[in-house]
Design a binder for these strands. Structure first.
Lengths: 243, 243
DNA sequence: GAGTGGTCTAGACCACTGG
DNA sequence: CAGTGGTCTAGACCACTCC
């Protein structure tokens, strides 16, 4: 059942084994998984090793624990995807809306000092700057400015960016796989330009979102700053307790 | 140094002890923390127990490990553990600030119809309502109202909620383990009450955060609505691309 | 009372880093 | 080489849940 002499740690082998049962639906949400003592007998390992496999899976959201009762398979589908990285197009699709864009600026420019630090490239390197008014069902919702290192995606501006998702182009045209993104969100007042483009009658709040996105293998692919109309947009996320 | 007979687990006592040294700057970023074997001698505990304290802190982003060299204090940048569920107190601690509270309302009231749906309890059930002005280094930062099913934590109001973390009380006094939380964030204008309590001179934006938190084994433990000063607070999160 | 997870011990061997 | 974290063992006692 497990290989005690191989290079793979025992607890990882146990983890993989349970993960398989979950993914192949031999174990379904809210089914009980074998107890720590059962696993240690089944695999011929100590209870602490079985425990390490289970508690890692609990931490990662695959399983949950009910004190004195047992460990169970977690519900995945409900919240899955809310903490995942999506662009404007997918975000709107999830809300049942159709995304489109009006391009305000699309150019290749030298990169400022501050931006070079964020994108982890040399100052003055060429970057693609792409400013778009993002519409949901034809109504202005956000003003979005993306900064992308030009050497990572030469020829980006030849594609139709009014209807296509930028992330879709990254994936299909350049073969990029997105990794992690860091976001910050804050509430501010709309400035004049935002007010005009978003169609606000008077002063109003906007949700300012900054995102730094990395590819799976490390390099920063974009820095995006967006201003969402406060009265029309809510940001959703799911947090998992870390212990 | 540690209390072996008390109700607090040894590894948590060790964790708190190291956390204190980090917060009081006795240990600075990139300083080495005592090794697992050193800690087990210092506290008179086994190495596995010391290890549990350290590895939890690594997972939470306080420390990092360098293989074969040692364990070190992490740079408290906006890096890790940001997608984990924390309360105001821990959030401020991560930013190097001290959290405190002014209690505006603490009572047991019957639950409204709308709230009953969110908390998944019967309408008119008793709930604890706790409204607090949250301060960071003595400066008002957020107005927070928590709604908690009373039957889950009877006697909650007897505890000191001005300095204690609500989540700390959940954990130590009731033995709760937090699971997932769903949050929504939006930008609005401060209403009169928020403006007065948060100390805003005139109209200003606030970041409105709603959170529904569940325990590990399912039940909803709280619904919290918070209004953060837009000019003093940024929300951080990390998104992971869903493959 | 029997089973569960939560904590803890006192050892052990390994791969890795530094001097 | 001595020290580090990574893994693992075979026990132990506890609080909890269900019957």
């Amino acid at each position: 059942m497990v290989n005690k002499d191989g290079p793979t740690p025992l607890y990882l082998q146990v983890k993989e084994s349970i993960l398989e049962r979950v993914e192949q639906h031999n174990l379904r949400p809210h089914d009980r998984v074998p107890s720590e003592r059962e696993l240690s007998q089944e695999f011929g390992i100590s209870r602490m090793t079985a425990r390490q496999a289970l508690s890692e899976m609990v931490r990662e959201g695959w399983l949950y624990v009910s004190m004195g009762k047992g460990t169970y398979v977690a519900e995945r589908k409900l919240d899955q995807g809310l903490e995942t990285l999506t662009g404007f197009t997918d975000d709107m699709r999830r809300r049942g809306l159709t995304a489109s864009s009006r391009i305000l600026q699309a150019a290749i420019i030298p990169c400022s000092l501050r931006l070079a630090e964020v994108l982890k490239i040399q100052p003055e390197s060429a970057i693609v700057i792409l400013e778009r008014l993002r519409l949901a069902d034809q109504v202005p919702l956000a003003l979005e400015t993306a900064h992308i290192p030009h050497h990572l995606c030469p020829g980006l501006l030849q594609y139709d960016l009014t209807t296509s998702s930028l992330y879709e182009i990254f994936r299909t045209k350049y073969g990029f796989r997105l990794g992690k993104a860091k976001e910050t969100l804050e509430a501010t007042m709309a400035n004049d330009r935002e007010r005009e483009l978003l169609g606000l009658a008077g002063p109003g709040p906007v949700l300012l979102i900054e995102r730094v996105t990395c590819l799976e293998d490390g390099p920063v692919i974009e820095y995006v700053k967006s201003a969402y109309r406060g009265d029309r947009y809510k940001f959703h996320t799911v947090l998992q307790h870390g212990s």
